[in-house]
Structures are given as structure tokens and as C-alpha cells.
């Protein structure tokens, strides 16, 4: 599913980043552009969950 509608970030895109080795919260935020000033900030608030998705610890949100 789409995790972020502002930037069109999908769960699969985060998983792919994880597979490429982007596994820590900072690197993920940077790679996804979550630190940009025009971001709504919701993703950054949930960065722990995004990191868990990248690390493959979460089953698909859609079940």
C-alpha cells in the first residue's frame, strides 16, 4: 500500500530500499526525502514503522 501520499512512497519501495541496505531511520528519511521542508512530517513521526518495513519485520500492512 501507499505509505505516503504526499510523495507517493509505497511499502514495496521501502522494502526495496531495505534490500539495498538502507536500514537505519536517518538513511531512510534522507533517501525518501522526508527531511525536505515541503514534507507534511507524518512519515518522519512514524519513521520507526518505516524502518521496521525496510528491515522486513512487518507483514504487509494490507494483510
Amino acid at each position: 500500500m501507499y505509505i505516503c501520499l504526499c510523495r507517493g512512497i509505497t511499502e514495496n519501495a521501502i522494502k526495496r530500499l531495505g534490500e539495498e541496505g538502507v536500514l537505519c531511520p536517518n538513511a531512510l528519511a534522507c533517501e525518501l526525502g522526508l527531511n525536505e521542508p515541503d514534507c507534511c512530517g507524518r512519515c518522519l513521526k512514524n519513521i520507526e514503522r518505516l524502518t521496521a518495513i525496510a528491515q522486513g519485520q512487518v507483514r504487509s500492512v494490507a494483510g
Partner: peptide, 17 residues
């Protein structure tokens, strides 16, 4: 949060939720 699925199957599951 609006939960948008990437595929039809995901959409159905998210709508069900």
C-alpha cells in the same frame, strides 16, 4: 489516514479494514 492499495487485492483488503 487514507489507506491506498497498490494493487486491486490490496485495495480490497484495505477497504475491508
Amino acid at each position: 489516514a487514507v489507506q491506498v492499495g497498490e494493487t486491486v487485492l490490496e485495495q480490497l483488503k484495505l477497504d475491508l479494514k
